[in-house]
Amino acid sequence: MKKTVRHLLLALLATSSAAQAAGPTAQALAFTCAGCHGTDGSSVGPSSPTIAGMDPDVFTDAMLDYKNEKRSSTIMKRIALGYTDEQIREMGFFFYRQQPRTKPQKTDPELVALGKSLHDSYCEKCHEEGGRPGDAGTLAGQWMPYLEHAMSDYLNDQRRWPRKMERKVKEAVKAEGERAVPALIQYYGSQN
């Protein structure tokens, strides 16, 4: 319910942000991302995440973190520095309005089942509905190689843990050992 209200508000904001100042349109800005993140943000390359449907705040935070070197990256810092904070916000709304198109990935049913139970216990509170697009990063149907990079960055202190994530992930690892993170990734990869 909380999520529905939030999405209604975001939809309103998204429409009102169409009236913009001089400079390239949000669409023109967002179109330049497609070569790495797919048409309208639905990636077909497994190391680049799908950003279609992403929560605009999550998008903006990620881009600002790249820009301000709070999140490690290979290329994204160099890209993010090319945009003003306002342009980043507008791109965020653009991608929020896009319907993600995900592709099936090969997963291991046993790990998927374990991942689902871990997700339900430790992750669902923030990554609602199995990690569908929402106010935490989109996980459902996300590319597994990308999720592997992301988790490795968290676990190696290359990326700031959001809110309660560090404690939750570490609890999951304590419960299921080294299989926990791969199982979660397999579960999300299976949800397209």
Partner: peptide, 20 residues
């Protein structure tokens, strides 16, 4: 690790450029 990831991004870039 940085160099290795850029190979995986190169391949994803390729797939996405073709797709786009």
């Amino acid at each position: 690790e940085h160099r290795k990831r850029e190979v995986t991004y190169a391949h994803s870039w390729f797939q996405n450029v073709i797709d786009d």
